[in-house]
């Protein structure tokens, strides 16, 4: 089958931005942490966009995937560090566990929640998130509310030097890679049958069914992909980077809301949107924390309300309309 390269042109600006971010962070002293934070937000935005942006379903429990990804990494490092000789493989085992756990919860949610629409779907997802969190705390699974700490295990396997390298550098680089993957998957889906099906589902699900679209199948594909990417981000950006996990820290709806804000700011259902939104959100949050520590939320909340009411289509939504019919059009979706 011939591959139409032109379809992937929109990735050029995305990867250019990521490369610039990476180089700036790598070579300008003191900026790595900020760049890593931005990459985290962009990666989350893009991962979340795959499901929500294309189907219009609001997965308010998205943070469940990130949280379970974190637990996957925590379990990988904690339990497999006991086997000598595994070395770096425990990180990959952690990633596999992250995928495994997120698949389980995705099946739970997809099997049931995806049959519900609108408000009921949002509530069911929140329900699963809270149910899992309190189940872990209540039944004292994986350390219960005391969580898991595994810096010691990490140093035992890799030595302090490498452990520091892993948590402060490689975890962040991995987030960049996941972000790049998420961008590619976004474009791939948008330009394939899946994207057409998801758009049809977003606009009119019943009509989509009559047109021959197996709505459950396509929703599940998008949901799983989105969940897996979220779990990978969680495994790296939280699991490996922080070397601890507490249920009360990770199953927090606030993070879902951050994802929504990022995607909506940038432009829902677009490729560049989550990237632009992630940058705007990350930078302004970082900046507000410096100039007005403690007041970020107080300032953010009204601004977000105003932006959503005034520009529901987001930055890229507006740009897209502007470039329609020009040569830039093929690069911006």
């Amino acid at each position: 089958m011939k591959i139409n390269i032109a379809k992937y042109y929109p990735l050029i600006p995305v990867y250019a931005v990521y490369l610039t971010m990476f180089l700036v962070g790598f070579f300008v002293p003191g900026l790595w942490q900020l760049v890593a934070l931005l990459a985290f937000y962009c990666a989350l935005g893009q991962s979340w966009n795959i499901f929500m942006g294309m189907t219009g379903y609001v997965d308010f429990g998205y943070v469940t995937f990130i949280a379970l990804g974190t637990y996957g990494m925590a379990l990988g490092i904690t339990y497999f560090s006991q086997f000598p000789g595994l070395g770096i493989a425990i990180i990959f085992i952690g990633l596999l566990l992250a995928l495994f756990l997120s698949t389980l919860s995705a099946i739970l949610e997809a099997g049931i929640a995806l049959r519900l629409r609108g408000a009921y779907f949002a509530i069911a997802c929140i329900g699963i998130n809270e149910g899992l969190r309190h189940l872990i705390e209540g039944a004292k699974i994986w350390g219960g509310s005391e969580g898991m700490l595994y810096w010691k295990e990490l140093t035992e396997v890799f030595g302090t030097e490498t452990a520091i390298q892993l948590t402060t550098l490689w975890a962040d680089i991995a987030v960049f890679i996941i972000a790049a993957m998420a961008a590619f998957i976004n474009v791939y889906y948008m330009r394939s049958k899946i994207g057409y099906a998801l758009t049809a589902i977003r606009e009119d699900e019943d009509a989509a069914k009559v047109m021959g679209i197996d709505t459950t199948k396509y929703k599940t594909i998008a949901f799983l992909t989105s969940g897996w990417l979220g779990a990978l981000v969680g495994a790296m950006a939280w699991g490996l980077k922080l070397t601890h996990v507490f249920p009360a820290d990770v199953f927090v709806i606030h993070y879902t809301v951050e994802c929504i804000v990022i995607v909506v700011l940038g432009g829902i259902g677009t490729l560049l949107g989550p990237l632009v939104g992630g940058l705007i959100y990350g930078l302004s949050k970082y900046w507000l924390a410096i100039i007005l520590p403690g007041f970020q939320l107080l300032i953010f909340a009204p601004i977000i309300i105003c932006i959503i009411i005034a520009f529901p289509e987001g930055v890229i939504g507006v740009v897209k309309r502007r470039v329609k019919g020009t040569r830039l059009e093929r690069y911006i979706i």
Binding site: K193, Y196, A197, T199, E203, A207, A208, M211
Partner: peptide, 27 residues
């Protein structure tokens, strides 16, 4: 019941993609 945010061409393409030609034709 058009898929409103999609263009006319995309709408009609959905028909081709998932109708009797489903699985036999590329995007």
């Amino acid at each position: 019941r058009p898929f409103s945010s999609a263009s006319v061409r995309e709408n009609v393409a959905v028909g081709a993609m998932f109708g009797t030609l489903s699985g036999k034709v590329s995007v």
